[in-house]
Every structure is written in C-alpha cells, then in structure tokens.
Design a protein around this nucleic acid. Structure first.
Lengths: 191, 191
DNA sequence: TATTGGGTAGACAGAACTGTCTACCTTATG
DNA sequence: CATAAGGTAGACAGTTCTGTCTACCCAATA
C-alpha cells in the first residue's frame, strides 16, 4: 500500500521534472529531494535511473492516453466528432501550466541512439495513440482509415511542436480545422 | 584562416553529435576527440559548452534554411509549387543518414527551462522559417498568407516528428498532399 | 637563426551524478 | 512488549563532466 504510493509518487514527481527540464538534466538527488523520499527508497523500487525513466514513460503513456479517451467520450458520441474533439482537448493541455511539449518526443530525442528499451517504449506509445485514432477513423466509416489516422496524428504532433515553440495554444484550432477537412473528405460532411 | 576552419570544424562535429545523441548526453571530451582538436582550442573559441551549443544552433539554422531555400528555388519558380517542394526536400532529409529529428526542437526540450539564450535562439530559428514560408505564401497570392504559413509550418513540424518516431520518410508526401489542399483553397487550383 | 603564435596532449581541480551502504527511526502486528 | 519490515538521512565510492593550465611542438616570418 504505502509501497505502491511511494513508487507512484516517485514516478509522478520524476515525470514532472523530466517533462520540464529534460531527462539528462534532472539528477536522482533532485528527484528524491522533490519527492521527499530517500535515495534508498528510490533504488529499492528502481534498479537504475533508466528504469525509473521507463516507468515514467509508461505512466505518462497510460494516464495521458486515458485522459484523452475519457475526455473524447465526454465531449461527443459520434466518432467523426470525437476525432475533432482531440484538438479541443489538446488546446486545453497546451494552455495548462505543465505543458512543455511532448515528453515522448523529448525522450526519443535524448535516448533514441543511447537506450534501446527507452526508444522502443516511445515507439510503442506513439503506436498506441495511432491505433486509438485509427479505431475512431474506422468507426466513423472513413474510406481509408489508416490514411486518415496518419493525417490526424501528423496534425496533432505538429500542433504540439508549434504550441511548445510559440507558446500559442490556439494553434490547436488551426489543426482542428485542417483535421475537419481531412475527415469531411473521407466521411462526407458530418459535423 | 586555420582559426576559422578549426572553429567551423568544431561546430560541425558538435552538431553531428548533439543531433544524434542530444546535448546533455554529449560531453566536451567526446567532441574534441571526434573533432581531433585539443580541449584548449575548443575553449579558445568558446567560453563554455553552452556557447558552443549556441554557435551550433546558429550554424544549423543558417545552413539548414539556406539549404531549403536553395533547393526550393532549384525545383520550381512558381511560389505555390515552391511551398509544395518543401515537402519533397523534407522527404529527402528524412531519408538521409543524419536525420534524428529536429535539432531545434531537441534543444528546446533540453534547455527551454534552463538556458534563456538557447531558448531564444530556438524561437528565432523557428520564426525565421515561418517568415520564409509566409513570404512564399504572400508571393503565391494566398488570401490569408499568415494563416497558410502557419498551416504549412504545422504540417512540416508534424512530418518531422512522425518521420523521427516511425522512421518512415514517406510521411512527408502525406503532409505534402495536405499542404496542397490548404494551398488550393487559398490560391485556387494552381498546380 | 631566433622568435612568436597557435596548435597538441593531457594532467588536474572542482563539481555533479549514479548507485551503495550504514545507522537510525517508525509503525504495524504477533 | 518485542520484532520485523520498510522507511529516512545522508555519508561515501567511483565515475564523469566542465573548465583551467602547463609543457611541449611546429611552422611562418623578421
């Protein structure tokens, strides 16, 4: 019980720090200090920093995708509209205080040529996101759901980078209007 | 003369390493070893690692944007087609052996909350890219060139991330077809 | 030839980071 | 109460990193 919550707390704290400052820039000492946990405890739960990073990425992957899925279903029941809702949610994320770009992309940037396990975990994460979007595309009876899903993913990734660089969360709505055109083309004037 | 070329060589080597492994992951020792230059020489030219990073980003910004501008002009004279050519060039870049995602995005991810000068340099770099695209959009008589330029930038950034994660350079052509729709909408069936 | 500038190699100091380990504390339970 | 599990604080070893500095070398030039 307390074991799980300590571990969980460590992962959450680490995610916050990694997300903000990057993975190499944040040391173990900083993490345990911020998490109010002893170094021993951290190394009881994780054999190494890279293992903590992996756990952090898995945690982010799950909570972040869960969040999107939940919010999407909250906003609409029509699959085509759900695809569009993704961008409304993204805008709110961009606007939030803990947005520093995509932590998965950050991890790939720092580890793709250094740690194979981290690289794979990141690919998996992006693949799962794609599959979720593809499933929505199929449900909305798109003519070429794979193609539409790639387009939506591309728009989402583009919006994330633009929002990170410019700080303008409204870019999400530009991406949304572009997504609408892609969807309409394949589904035929839904919204 | 030899001074300039040493400096230049250092910057090129550093860019290669930073691009591949990230900025924090690459140490000064690695750079001087790979560049076949003594540590003293490096610190004669740059006061600190961060200054070397700044020079590296400036160098990348110039050469990379120059490369795009040159290639674009080589491929077409019509501004609307030039906007599309950007994605053909991007595909070739993605396919190249030295593509590891956008080094500017990588730098923002590692330094945006750590080093203000680096952050500003990255923003400037992306701004200059945007302005180049906006200029092309204006030349192609787009109804809303700012809006079109944002769309093209978004598609380009999205394609870079997707290519980096999936390793599939063909994503550039998906972005290109999406860009074509955006352009046609504002310019009126050009290509 | 003598000198000077700019290079090399690399030792070194000092800081920071990862990971280990000891010594102590707290809390739940038999 | 006694004990055991799991926590804390933090010293410590060993490595690595940044940045400095010394000692030497080579090539061009007065």
């Amino acid at each position: 019980m307390s074991k799980l919550s300590k571990r969980d707390h460590l992962v959450k704290t680490a995610l916050e720090l990694f997300n903000k400052h990057g993975f190499h820039a944040v040391g173990i000492d900083t993490i345990v200090q911020k998490a109010q946990v002893s170094k021993k405890t951290l190394y009881n739960h994780f054999h190494s920093k890279n293992e903590l990073i992996l756990a952090t990425l898995r945690y982010y992957d799950e909570t972040s995708r869960n969040f999107y899925v939940r919010e999407v279903e909250k906003r609409s029941k029509a699959p085509a509209e759900q695809l569009l809702a993704i961008f409304d949610i993204a805008e709110e994320v961009f606007n939030g205080s803990s947005f520093y770009g995509c932590v998965i992309v950050k991890a790939i940037g720092e580890f793709s040529e250094i740690d194979e396990a981290i690289r794979r975990s990141c690919e998996e994460s992006k693949r799962l996101l794609y599959e979720y979007i593809e499933a929505l595309a199929k449900k909305s009876n798109a003519q070429e759901p794979e193609s539409l899903a790639k387009e939506i993913c591309l728009l989402l990734e583009g919006a994330i980078v633009m929002a990170q660089v410019s700080g303008d969360s409204q870019i999400a709505f530009i991406a949304k209007s572009m997504a609408k055109k892609c969807i309409d083309e394949q589904v035929g004037q839904t919204v």
